[in-house]
Amino acid sequence: MKLDEIDRAVLRALCANADQSTSRLGEKLGLSQPATWRRVRRLQDAGIIAGRRLQLDQEKLGFGVTVFLGVKLATKGRVSLEDFERALTAIPEIQTVDHVLGLYDYRLRIVARDLADFERILRRRIMTLPGVGDVEANVLLSEERLPGPI
């Protein structure tokens, strides 16, 4: 699907506020509500808009620490990557699992109540998984969300 400037403007506006109505979105872009709705629907049908997500304030919910954990598998041949990834999905504090190239095989984003809670998750949940070798933790100090290249 080829995107024009109006499609890109729709995407930028929805990235800023995915909860706005098509009427409000149309007002901002100088389009009628039906025309805006058709644009959004076409972008959804093409799979460009894959969904909308609710963003929660983790700190207000009691999760004050975010850690990026690099995990290197010790025995890649013995443990299938699918089994390892499936085991990670059973740990609710793990927000994302990225299979990456480089020094580590996986990059995990983990939320915890505090550092002691993270240590518990690391020792009791992650380090006990079969195949886990070296790990490296990086604590998030601050995060700036930058708009993507749309």
Rank of each mutant, 00 (worst) to 15 (best):
M1Q: 10
M1L: 08
M1V: 06
M1H: 09
D4F: 07
D4A: 05
D4N: 15
D7G: 11
D7I: 04
R8E: 12
A9P: 05
V10D: 14
V10F: 07
L11W: 05
R12E: 12
R12A: 08
A13Q: 05
A13I: 01
L14M: 03
C15T: 03
A16G: 11
N17L: 03
D19T: 15
Q20Y: 06
Q20V: 14
T22F: 09
T22S: 13
G26Q: 10
E27H: 12
K28V: 11
L29F: 06
L29E: 02
L31E: 02
Q33E: 10
Q33K: 12
P34E: 07
A35C: 02
T36D: 10
R39C: 06
R39G: 03
R39W: 07
V40D: 06
V40R: 10
A46T: 09
A46S: 15
G47M: 06
G47E: 03
G47H: 11
A50D: 07
A50C: 10
G51L: 03
R53C: 06
L54P: 07
Q55V: 13
L56P: 05
D57Q: 11
D57I: 09
D57H: 13
D57C: 04
Q58K: 04
L61G: 13
L61A: 15
G64A: 14
G64I: 00
V65R: 13
V65F: 03
T66H: 01
V67M: 05
F68Y: 15
F68E: 14
L69M: 08
V71D: 07
K72D: 04
L73P: 15
A74K: 13
G77C: 00
G77T: 12
R78G: 02
V79S: 06
L81I: 05
L81G: 14
L81M: 06
L81Q: 12
D83N: 11
F84C: 04
E85D: 01
R86V: 04
A87F: 01
A87R: 12
L88S: 09
T89N: 08
A90N: 04
A90E: 13
I91E: 01
I91V: 14
P92Q: 13
I94T: 08
Q95L: 07
V97S: 09
V97A: 06
V100G: 02
V100E: 07
L101P: 09
L103S: 01
Y104E: 06
Y106Q: 03
Y106I: 02
L108F: 08
L108R: 01
R109T: 15
I110P: 14
I110S: 09
V111E: 07
A112W: 05
A112R: 05
D114T: 10
D114R: 12
L115W: 08
A116H: 09
F118S: 00
E119L: 13
E119A: 14
R120G: 12
R120A: 03
R120D: 14
L122C: 04
R125Y: 03
R125F: 04
I126Q: 01
L129V: 14
L129I: 00
L129N: 04
P130Q: 00
P130V: 00
G131R: 05
G131H: 04
V132P: 14
V132L: 00
G133A: 02
D134N: 12
D134F: 05
V135W: 00
V135A: 00
V135M: 08
N138W: 07
N138C: 11
L140E: 15
L140F: 01
S142P: 05
S142H: 09
S142F: 12
E143D: 09
E144S: 09
L146F: 12
G148Y: 00
G148R: 08
P149S: 02
P149C: 00
I150L: 15
